[in-house]
Design a protein around this nucleic acid. Structure first.
Lengths: 342, 342
DNA sequence: CTTAACCCCTAGAACGTTTTAGGTCGCGTG
DNA sequence: CACGCGACCTAAAACGTTCTAGGGGTTAAG
């Protein structure tokens, strides 16, 4: 039956008025019942429910939001190819739902810029946006922050109109360096994140930690993707000089790429070279040997971001609510690091 | 300045009426200008643009959709942790934009079921939905198809209310088996997708291809994630019997998991065991050695799905428009397969 | 018998757009 | 002098909800 009328008249979706007419009541009453608000007799309540189900009525979220003056929507911009972002999104959905908000995703891809992604979120009248690892300029981010409550995730940026939730990158790299030094390594190279968000912080963390140990830092250009990690290692190998004994990658995918290149070159991990990542993407836990990495708790960061976003929405007057939420990273030792043998 | 008034009065977003008032014209005229429709004098056009920019006006997509009676929206349900889906989404955005449609994403996570994901797409009044690798029952999918134009991606399901875009799974597994047999392998085991969409087809493809070569199929239970691949290999190793010389995994992540477990066990790939994946996730191209795999063209499938969805929307009367779009997979030989040495 | 208090219900106005149906100019043409 | 015609503009009605204000009842208290 549903199949039947679907095939014949899929033109207009059924509306509140349709249900009201069919049930012989006013639209206001149907609205009441559908929202579970008080003020309808049990008899009518039951009848409305029955008719609504029969007609397959689903409330129109746009009309609802329009009338209510608020959308209860949290906009999330993320990069679709970043594995870590997937973990964050899981957490955001969960936290938002618990707080009674809906989530609208807007992905950044090769052909879809951050500007465009944010633009649709504005047009959708989100009440706040969470930007996961944005690469846009500080100015553009500030402009977004000027328009509506904005939480920047996983990028370091200081501005009165922006809240930030991020890991203590400097601390994270210090943990990693300390770990490697503890294993006897001295020639530790950092494959950096190039222009990625928070790459600068991680470089700094690496550099100061190295210097604290009296070691000379060496940084080679990398990036956030696998390919960057493997290319960086290829460059190191081609460089001719002797290889470092440990590699500190910008993030997990980058570390995986490095692992890949090392493997291809027949270099044993961790016997000849140790490798450390960053993020603890749930990929890192499973794949090959298990990657030693610096854990950023995606779920925790997601919860903090959502909480901050909502508090910004709710008392959206008053001056300087913005501030940073910094989560402390933790070292997760797995199989890609070992004692220095050289 | 923008910073200033953002801090003080972020209450209501600026509306068409605000712009109209400020520019001293009617809302209708502002609407005209913003849409680039003809019928406004150059002078007014310029003035309206200027005022709109000053006030930071962004049209409310909900109100627009409500009035127009159509949302121009394509809903996409996907699994946020599936790497292959990310590739598909890139393609969908691109194809949809080219056709003048917007995309709304609805993710499935551990805590967010497919039902819920589809529910929000319905409430958002998408004009069609694309379901990427749904695991829901055929009945539930059919019900969705009865409500609005529905394209199922990457899952085999036959129903008059559902369009399907998928790879020729049987052909794909035949390619892989032929490749391995050509390399001299005879003991080829399939780590399957358990209850995943299209797992059944791939099992069948594997089985018939093996039998065609006069070989006896052996299937062990796997799944779509890395962990499933490595657990399956662990089980094989624990089984005590001698190891197969080749492994055919359900998909790339599963294959990566298998590689991981083999590596951990000190078994050389491809010298002792060859491994083949499925999907050609862009991960497979980079990581470790490079995975030999059966390529499903994500971009092509995305384009087909979008085209089908739009054609369903546009002549959304008439009877049996639905049908299958089957793309032919291709074998991509990389480093994880080699001649049988045993 | 009035008045108040409740319960259930409905009319109608919003929300921010687009669209329809005009309305007012200025100007050229019969 | 009508009159028609473009070019430009606007008032007002939609779209599908929610919400405010209030209207009938019934019952209870004064």
């Amino acid at each position: 039956m549903t199949i039947e009328d679907a095939g014949t008249a899929p033109t207009r979706r059924t509306t509140l008025a349709d249900v009201a007419r069919q049930a012989g009541v006013s639209t206001a009453l149907v609205s009441l019942v559908m929202r579970g608000a008080p003020g309808a007799s049990p008899a009518n309540r039951e009848k409305v429910f029955r008719v609504a189900r029969e007609l397959g009525y689903v409330p129109d979220s746009r009309a609802r939001a329009l009338r209510q003056g608020r959308s209860q929507l949290l906009g999330v911009m993320f990069h679709v190819q970043q594995t870590f972002h997937a973990d964050v999104i899981e957490g955001i959905y969960e936290a938002a739902e618990a707080a009674g908000y809906d989530v609208v995703l807007s992905a950044v891809t090769d052909s879809r810029s951050e500007d465009k992604a944010i633009g649709t979120l504005l047009a959708d009248r989100c009440e706040a946006v969470i930007l996961v690892a944005p690469t846009s300029s500080r100015e553009w981010l500030a402009e977004v922050g000027g328009r509506l409550p904005t939480v920047v995730l996983v990028r370091h940026v200081r501005h009165p109109d922006l809240s930030v939730v991020r890991a203590a990158d400097v601390k994270g790299l210090a943990l990693a360096v300390d770990h490697l030094v503890g294993l006897g390594h001295t020639r530790i190279v950092h494959i950096d994140g190039a222009g990625s968000p928070s790459a600068e912080q991680r470089r700094r963390g690496y550099r100061t930690a190295m210097e604290r140990h009296g070691l000379t830092p060496q940084i080679v250009r990398g990036g956030w993707a696998e390919i960057n990690g493997s290319q960086a290692v290829d460059a190191l190998l081609a460089g001719g000089g002797d290889l470092p004994t440990a590699i500190l990658a910008f993030n997990d995918p980058c570390a995986m790429g490095a692992l890949s290149a090392l493997h291809r070159a027949g270099i044993a991990v961790p016997d000849e070279v140790s490798v450390v990542g960053f993020d603890d993407t749930h990929l890192a836990g499973f794949s090959h040997i298990g990657l030693t990495t610096v854990r950023q708790d995606a779920g925790l960061m997601a919860r903090l971001a959502v909480a901050r976003a909502i508090s910004l929405i709710e008392r959206s007057n008053g001056a300087d609510e913005h501030g940073d939420g910094v989560v402390v990273p933790a070292l997760v030792v797995r199989g890609t690091t070992g004692p220095c043998r050289r």
